[in-house]
Amino acid sequence: MEEILSKYKTTAEGDVKVWFKAASIHDFTENGGACVKYKDKQIAVFNYKRKNAWYACQNVCPHKMEMVLSRGMLGDYQGIPKIACPMHKKTFSLETGENLNGDLEAIATYPVKVEDDFVFIGFSE
């Protein structure tokens, strides 16, 4: 279990070494999420149309270690963009990864950029 989590480390934009070209922006539902496979990682990517922003985080929920966050629901908590896990509705900030309604470990977040209608996710390795 620990092993799975250790794969995911929050990456700041400045530390990005690889911009991984994930998919066309048209493959992501507006105000919804999808899961991107990068090597042995699963990354949840959200097209937060309402804020005109994109977010990415680990797909695995630290609560029960299931690969499900991309299927969760977007929203905000007092303005902070968040994702609610579809399993037990634990919510996490998409900016800091912090668990907003509990004391689970924060999830790892990744930078996203859009170029030529393509979505790129930044990794440090």
Partner: peptide
């Protein structure tokens, strides 16, 4: 579909 960029399945 589990992944947007692959037809692979959830290997977890």
């Amino acid at each position: 579909s589990h992944f947007v960029n692959s037809d692979d399945r959830d290997d977890n």
